[in-house]
Nucleic acid binder design. Sequence first.
DNA 1: GTCTATATTTCGATAGAC
DNA 2: GTCTATCGAAATATAGAC
Lengths: 203, 203
Amino acid sequence: MARPRTQGPQTREKILDVALELFVQYGYDKTSLRDIAERLGITKAALYYYFERKEDILMELHLRLHAMGSEVLDELEAVPDGPARIAAFPAMLERLVVTMVGNRQLILLHRRNQSALEALHSDERNRVENEDLQRRLVRILSSEEISLTLRVRVACAIGAITETFFESGDAFGDVEPEELADLVRDVISDLLGSQLAAAAPRL
Amino acid sequence: MARPRTQGPQTREKILDVALELFVQYGYDKTSLRDIAERLGITKAALYYYFERKEDILMELHLRLHAMGSEVLDELEAVPDGPARIAAFPAMLERLVVTMVGNRQLILLHRRNQSALEALHSDERNRVENEDLQRRLVRILSSEEISLTLRVRVACAIGAITETFFESGDAFGDVEPEELADLVRDVISDLLGSQLAAAAPRL
DNA sequence: GTCTATATTTCGATAGAC
DNA sequence: GTCTATCGAAATATAGAC
């Protein structure tokens, strides 16, 4: 709290790094700007040079995950609903595995701060142009072109991924990530295999 | 705000009902005691007749879910680790399905307020004697008596349940709960079937 | 770009009357 | 058992110097 730093533009990234870590560990609401500033060796006021509001820090972190999730969903939504999209599910789930494994912290931020993030969205200042990812997924899973059985199984596959890598991830801490990922891939195959064959025999 | 009510002891339950609803909808941190009181037509101060601290309201709601979850885990932990416990997994998962379907709001409270609930635990005032449910589950899934494949599949089954009924539940809003539950049961069978046979051929 | 100092607001919690 | 009134703490945010 003594000396100025004149750190240049990478300070903004450092703020986001520290904020992500603290938001995941203690939660957005229980992390004060003072906590973030102290960890960085600057003062609360300095944060306001980079972010107008505390919410903007959360928002920027949210947008990074949102961008990644959007890529996955964009690709899926580009395929017409029906058999073609069914055939595209495995690739989507594979991307999901890779994305989730490679972005643990951002995923945890969302899983542990759901209400804070939802409050962001309903805030008119932070009007998010895009539809929420979860809502887009729900729409995809609501398709009337796809059998209920398959829709449920795709949902189950997603749940399998998140549970294995996050909620119960601690149980597999000493397993190689790739080995774990392969086991989850087997699960996904088991869940969708027969259904894909039944739904699109010619693909 | 105007008239006293002299409501008797059911007021405490009403407070918990309203709090649960608001905590789920807006999150624990963004729900003030004033919000709860106004919804009930009483004042903030009246709440303190029933609960010493705001945290105590959350704690009581938490304990209700904890009790239910403990029943399920107690039963599983009563079975010795190894083949016998493996054989007990399907019954545990079935209880989980029933419990989750029958206690939507309480489950949502936990899923949407993870960090607030974790803060409760580390608070010495609210020292929870029991180990956290998630930690107990992780321990069960960390068993060295069970193949990694099966451990992962049990985790996946749990994820399948939660994703279908909660995260992506909106996609199945117009499906009969029992039909949905049956589809999830099929998924669980597919996930564990071959593994159970391989692990405990004589059971 | 960071500081000190302070304004502003919100909220949990308490005191004491009825 | 509920109220009015108020306290005290904490946190976000701002003003202005350096």
